[in-house]
Nucleic acid binder design. Structure first.
Lengths: 376, 376
DNA sequence: AGCGTGTACC
DNA sequence: GGTACACGCT
């Protein structure tokens, strides 16, 4: 039996929106740690994985692992019936052939229940090509989307070159060629910039902790067997960081996203109960966050993003130069996830599939895309 | 060799946007005075000319005259890759077959370079139909766009009648007829509106000088000898006004734009050199402008336009009544240039092509359209 | 965020 | 040839 209570239906809506064009049917694998989805795109060129951790839900319960075979088209329709800020409850009985979705308006005046048919899907869960990445580029997701959109006007492919200079995106087209160089952002230029920070700072701590987690996760992915283990480890670490300091610079970026989500919840749903999963840690933040501003969440989110904008720069970590060519059509598709995170991470090694990762609070969506060969 | 550095890519974007539907290929004629484009529309009914003076660029260099044969479709694509506030650098080697466009983000963290193929275009540079205009109507460009849009819903043609009463736009359609009368705005309500004016006045003079040239070219057909004279006459007038007051409305508008650009440069690239071209005049404005707000340029521009909006009224100068009929389809197209200037000037004489002119800071875009005959 | 246009699929 | 989906623009 699954019961998962999501604070904002918008998160799920955006996730499904991001992948529905790529994937028509997929299994949501549910277990006590959360929901996972993995699917090849329809043309079997790209791989998508989605993860929503149990901790990202207001309430989460899954007695035993179960796959929910979902048709994205149906789910999209059903999710359109939810308002962005509705609380969304997912329920499925063991071996059920339907998924129940309940939308509760924030004031609880309105309760809508939908039951969506499930299907049996051969879950050819493939091992994720695991790699040790030689280059890792973090950049604002909007910037990535812009570049991909721009270049796809010129040609079908983009060559990505990562060097110490920065990362360069190159496209050759019939009428024109284009190349965009993003230099690595200088560095921690964030100090003393704002007064909002403060509220933020605390969330930063959280964020950073999470970021740390995320980073670790990724690293581990390379040897994925350990991934899970790591996750747990990270969690532990997170708490530790928080306790100790909470002001790690780099993590800050990634954390900020998390912070956003959490902060939002705090503000928007401050009146609500308690976050069970990780409350222990979140409680501390709750108050400070509230102090900041009880106002508009939408605005709040925006501010946060903007705050981050400054902070969210381009950062590059690399062991060696990497040059790869990809189909812009797919990257364009991936960049639909821009709404899920202000930041995107590209992981690359020569001759190995690119990993494009959007991490949001307590979850992520990742895309894998094989490079074109022969730089065609 | 050409190298032209434009403070804001938006200017070029808007220009090309305005003409791309009318013209598919055209030569940008570059010389030390600036860039000029002249082309018949695809159906050879209308003529478009564009001028961007060297003084409108942050930096401008053109060693020797050269034509750049551009496909508007390609250029449109490449320009879409520029953000409105990017600095845009155009470069072409002598006899090059490509035009290089470089976009620098204001923070310079992002540098995008595009190379667009050029083409050889038979520059059948036509003499511009030259006329002695019997009527000159100046009005808010938005007003013109609105009228054209409204009337094109009713019929295919508009009859424009200029009299002392004002200017009247008449359309007869199957389902309905419409006519719009614009009376001349009371009078000089422009005084005291700006302090910036000065610099601009000069460029205005230049433009008129240029206009004169163009007009002269074509004068042959009517009784052109006088045309020039006329233009000059106006010029003299204008100068006179300027000297007396310094607050000539028209000039003011254009000046403001300049001010913006300079201000921006100052702020963003304060470390850079100096504006060579018109610094002498701009300096005066510089300080006051800065005091206001060093912030968003976009906003700044907007403000200026808005500033002008108030002052921009309808003014009519005429020697005799004029009645002409035009295809609304083309006028609708011309009015795409509305974004380039808050003001538009219509120059008309009976049985002679209409001249529709949008002047912006240091340049203009002009359209010529032959009247329909027999008022069909 | 909504509307309109263009592209792709049935 | 029509319908539906996606993308871009206002």
């Amino acid at each position: 039996m699954l019961e998962a209570r999501l604070s904002e239906a918008a998160i799920l809506k955006r996730l499904i929106d991001a992948i529905k064009e790529l994937v028509t049917d997929a299994n949501f694998e549910c277990n006590e740690e959360g929901l996972n989805l993995q699917a090849m795109d329809n043309s079997h060129v790209a791989l998508v994985t989605v993860n929503m951790q149990a901790s990202g839900f207001k309430k989460y319960r899954c007695d035993r692992p179960m796959p929910l075979g979902v048709n994205m088209n149906s789910l999209t329709k059903v999710l359109k019936c939810a308002k962005d800020d509705d609380v969304c409850i997912l329920k499925a009985a063991d071996d059920a052939d339907v998924l129940s979705l309940t939308y509760e308006a924030r004031n609880t005046d309105r309760i809508a229940e939908y039951e969506m048919k499930l299907m049996d899907i051969d879950s050819d869960t493939l091992g994720i090509p695991d790699t040790e990445y030689d280059a890792r580029v973090t950049m604002p997701s909007g910037e990535f989307a812009r570049i991909v959109r721009d270049l796809s006007q010129l040609g079908e492919s983009v060559r990505i070159e990562v060097s110490k200079e920065g990362v360069r995106f190159i496209s050759d087209g019939e009428a024109a060629n284009g190349n965009i160089l993003l230099k690595q952002t200088d560095a921690p230029q964030r100090s003393g910039s704002s007064s909002k920070k403060k509220a933020k700072a605390e969330s930063d701590d959280e964020e950073e902790a999470q970021a740390t987690d995320e980073e670790e996760q990724e690293e581990e992915e390379d040897e994925d067997g350990e991934k899970k283990v790591k996750v747990k480890k990270e969690k532990a670490k997170k708490e530790k960081v928080k306790k100790e300091d909470g002001d790690v610079e780099m993590n800050g970026d990634e954390d900020e996203e998390d912070a956003d989500y959490q902060q939002k919840e705090d503000e928007d749903e401050g009146e609500e109960e308690q976050d069970e999963e990780e409350e222990s840690s979140s409680k501390k933040r709750k108050k400070p966050a509230k102090n900041g501003k009880p106002a508009k969440k939408a605005k709040k989110v925006k501010e946060e993003n903007e705050d981050d904008d400054g902070p969210v720069g381009v950062s590059i970590e690399m062991n060696q130069h990497v040059t790869l060519t990809f189909s812009l059509k797919y990257l364009l598709n991936f960049s639909k996830s821009t709404t899920l995170s202000k930041k995107v991470v590209l992981m690359m090694s020569n001759d190995v599939p690119l990993l494009v990762s959007y991490d949001f609070g307590n979850g992520f969506i990742r895309y894998y895309l094989a490079p074109k060969i022969g730089d065609d």
